[in-house]
Design a protein around this nucleic acid. Sequence first.
DNA 1: GAGCACTGC
Length: 739
Amino acid sequence: MAAGAKVVHFSNEDDDQFIIHDNKHAAKRRRVQNGVHESAADQPNDRPESSRPKAPTQKQEKDLQRKKQELFEFRKNLPVFTGMIYNCVDWLGVPILTSISFFSSARDQIIKGVQENETVVIVGETGSGKTTQIPQFLLECGIGSPGRGAIAVTQPRRVAATSLAKRVAEEVGTTLGYRVGYTVRFDDASSQHTMIKYLTDGMLLRELLSDKLLLRYSVVILDEAHERTLRTDMLFGMVKEIQQTRKEMVQRGEKDVCELKIVVMSATLDAEKFSEYFNGARIMYVSGRLFPVKVYNTIEPQSDYLDAALVTIFQIHMRRPKGDILVFLTGQEEIETLTALLTEYAGQLPSNVQALLPCPLFAALPPAQQQKVFEPAPHNTRKVVLATNIAETSITISGIRYVIDCGVAKVRGFNAKIGVESLLVHPISKSSARQRMGRAGREAAGFCYRLYTEPSFGSLEENTIPEIKRCNLAAAVLNLKAAGVHDVLHFDYMDRPSRTSLSRALEQLYSLSAIDDKGTLTQEGKQMAEFPLDPVFSKVLIQSQQYECTSEVISIISLLSVDSVFFTPPDKRDNVAEAKKRFVHPDGDHLTLLNVLKSYWEVKGDKEWCRENFINMRNIKIVLDVRNQLIQFCTRMGIVSSTSAGNETDNILKSFLSGFFQNTALLQPDGTYKSVVGGQTISIHPGSSMFGKRVEAIMYNELVFTTRQYVRGVSTVQGAWLPMAAPKYFGNSKLATNA
DNA sequence: GAGCACTGC
């Protein structure tokens, strides 16, 4: 390689490399001061209003039928409709035709498959139409019917559930919420007439609490099963058990019960694992509609993938035909750094070359700016989307023909032994790398540039570790107990969490008095499980009655349920810090957050005020939704939600301490803080109002290890409060005697 | 002195 110049060499590439001057120093992770964000406050997020679940009028009926007919022309050409169904694939994933496949359509085979088997695993690539069509097939053949029960289709994400329901309602020819509908948090477009219901997996878990055998459904379709979210994994175990129970009930001749069909849908080829778990369920493969993607790996390992990404972007830009580029990076900071560098270099491009438009994309970005990613690039311009993992599953962008994959991602972890969460950069799995690659082949043949060598790819884990094995299970275990699963240690998990992790969750629930020493749910535990909250928050909310500050506690819990009520454009960090100071309460973040909400109410949510104070309007709206929902739950459970602490703000903090007594730290003589549980040195996150302050004791909302053990959501507490907050926990400790 | 992947009830 020439001195002072840098090229990234990929496998299979021809030799004419585009060379730009070595920018290694420029690419260092410096904080970018001149970002590209223009407006501070985002646009209000207008959540689509659910249509009222009514039967269509005669006129509507006519329009609906016309639309249905139009859509049918498209539907009938989908692979899942008339394509091939394969019973098996060879080791490369290439389908092997079997004789049955030739005699009937894919549709008929799928129907037959579900009719003849209690559980079916369907593997289909993106574009096969499985998620929209299969529920309709099952409705048309009568497996889903008013007599037998409805069809539930679970999705890991809200947007997917709502948009799929809208589409399928049109295809079926019904008004949304009537025969086809959806149920997600804060938004329900379903009725007793709904036969196909799309819902988030979390929502089905909640329905399980009141309908323990899911009797209103005859089929449960678990979609996107390969993602292995915590909730999908919990559903696996629960529906498997329910299926067995209902089968036995039918065999005993009980009335008003039919067997439960389970359909597991997955995009990847790990179907054997699902099949094995579901007692050898039948596997069916549906062909998809993905275009081929040519993969390049670097010849040498890259020490700085950000730098390598920058060079690769220009290599593609100068030498490859039209088509937008999607770059996978790990986080906001990297994205902002690369956006700035790209803007800088793009300005130096010769005038005969098309322009380059960087578009950052990450979850914390305000919706108005996320929207820019979807707008087609201006004439003679190539769009470069710089994204986190959000573009791997949650957001699909059209026009992408080139993917650059850095091979790493930030992953949430949980060390059950010491009970600490972490957020660290980790190599992705092969399946994740394939998923990223596939983003280049959705509309035409594409190209994927991996910024790591082929042997490195070979050494990656096959699949991402399921979430259930790397998170705090307290909420999940409480949910299981409330749904009637007493023995959570021997529950039928597809991937069993470690014993340490389960024990820790049980211990935590015991310390919160949610379960007794036999592991049985207490009265308080039952109440805690009702709330759509982490058990710790539920505990605080229940305890707030004694401290007479339920109103404030509900507000603060709602505020803590979003990442941040502020929005920080990269070039306005100082201004944001300045704005935050206006709300600071000397006792810390809990009461500071409350001040933000109070101020927001005082100005009645004025948009200009929000802009001036860098208030994240999308998140404030979520806060208000959560708050309203919590008030509703309180009313239902006989908790007076309007009780206010007035000026007794200590009571608010004492309430929080009754749940968060384990999340406390004491000031050491050297000025650092040491956690009460575990005795670790922790640092207050720079985003906290308590940053740099020294007080006797602090309580924090969360502890996450990134570059250090950082605590966020921090407030001052008095050491003397600790034994009062958790007598069972601190009763014999030194702290209690000192106090 | 200095920083927060993504979902969901």
